[in-house]
Computed example of a mutant assay.
Amino acid sequence: MASSSFSILFTTILLATLVVSTLANFDNEFDITFGDGRARVLNNGQDLTLSLDKYSGSGFRSKNEYLFGKIDMQIKLVPGNSAGSVTTYYLSSMGSAHDEIDFEFLGNVTGQPYTLHTNVFAQGKGNREQQFHLWFDPTEDFHTYSILWNPQRIVFSVDGIPIREFKNMESKGVSFPKDQPMRVYSSLWNADDWATQGGRVKADWSQAPFTASFKAYKAEACVWASGTSSCGSVPSATSGSGWLNQELDSASVERMNWVHKNYMIYNYCADVQRFPQGLPAECANTS
């Protein structure tokens, strides 16, 4: 019995070492990528703010690269008149045939809702946009935005409520991000040529600087370093974390359907005018 207990304990410890889980200190986990002082790490690394003015935005990226993970970030978006601004939070690899998993928050005039824009790129191909309004004001407090990325699916969630699932459908000829490690990025930048009402509403620079705030970053993820994943060559449930094989249960699907019914404002899989030759293959399994 003692030998069996020791074996279970040893296995648990071994598996736990394969997956990195961190509640970030921003100084330790991220590099500022641009902004010339407009990105600021505060409270001994516990908080980070990005600012935008008419001269420049700002951004940061993770020091680590990941090949699969569950990534959480708490964000409080630019308050008031945020028209023309875009706050991004996404995973991306490098190169023209890159993979990318996007949250983008498109600002609006005071009193109008943000547009939450999502997209998935695989091997350089995107054009998989779904957009939502939120069921709360994302400028009043912090909310948790999560990306679950495992070999079977990508799930976007807000405060634990799934809003979008993109399944691995390589069997139907649909590319899926699974071979290229990605870093976590975030930025706040000026996109007033398109972001708000198709570019009709421009940024009001008298309200600058615009500021978004970040905290409580957490990565349960397979770290990629020197061509090797910390989860091994074939990640699976035995790699030490349930998220590697996690899927949506019936309650989660019901909540996602609630979001789609009440808060989705654009779905590329319903845009038949955009795809006159037929909807993309993956759309047969989306709602």
Rank of each mutant, 00 (worst) to 15 (best):
K172G: 00
Q130L: 12
I154P: 05
G124W: 04
E100M: 07
G111T: 06
G126L: 06
I147M: 14
N108S: 15
M94Q: 15
L116S: 03
P181G: 07
P181N: 06
N168V: 07
K178I: 07
E165P: 01
L106N: 03
E140N: 14
H143P: 00
F105S: 01
P151F: 11
L188R: 03
G160I: 10
G126A: 09
W189R: 04
F121G: 00
I154S: 05
T88P: 01
F105E: 01
L188N: 03
T110E: 14
D192W: 09
P113I: 05
G95D: 06
V109E: 15
A97P: 01
K172T: 06
P113R: 08
S93V: 07
T144F: 11
I163L: 14
S96I: 13
L148F: 12
T110F: 12
Q112A: 13
Y114F: 13
S171R: 14
D193C: 00
L91Y: 06
S93A: 08
D159H: 12
Y145G: 03
L134M: 15
G160A: 09
I147D: 08
S92M: 11
L134A: 07
R128F: 09
P138E: 10
N108F: 11
T87Q: 14
T144K: 14
G160T: 11
W135A: 08
G95S: 04
D192R: 05
I154T: 06
M94G: 12
K172Q: 13
S93W: 05
S157F: 12
W189H: 06
F105H: 04
H133T: 14
G160K: 05
E140M: 14
L148T: 13
G95C: 08
F136L: 06
L188W: 11
W194Y: 12
I147P: 04
F176R: 00
Y185E: 02
Q112I: 06
T87K: 07
F105G: 00
A191D: 10
Q123G: 10
V184Y: 11
S92A: 13
P177Q: 02
K172Y: 14
Q180Y: 09
N150W: 11
V184D: 04
S157C: 10
L148W: 11
L91F: 09
Q180P: 02
E140D: 15
Y185C: 02
Q131L: 10
Y89V: 02
T144L: 10
Y145L: 08
H133S: 09
T118R: 08
S96C: 04
R153K: 15
G95T: 09
G126Q: 03
N150P: 11
L91W: 07
F156D: 04
M169R: 15
D99M: 01
N119K: 06
S186I: 00
D137Y: 09
G107Y: 08
Y145W: 13
T144S: 12
R183D: 05
G124Y: 06
S96K: 13
H143C: 06
M94Y: 15
F166P: 00
D102C: 02
W194N: 03
F136G: 00
T87C: 12
P177V: 00
S187A: 15
E165G: 03
V174H: 02
D192E: 12
Q130P: 01
Q123D: 15
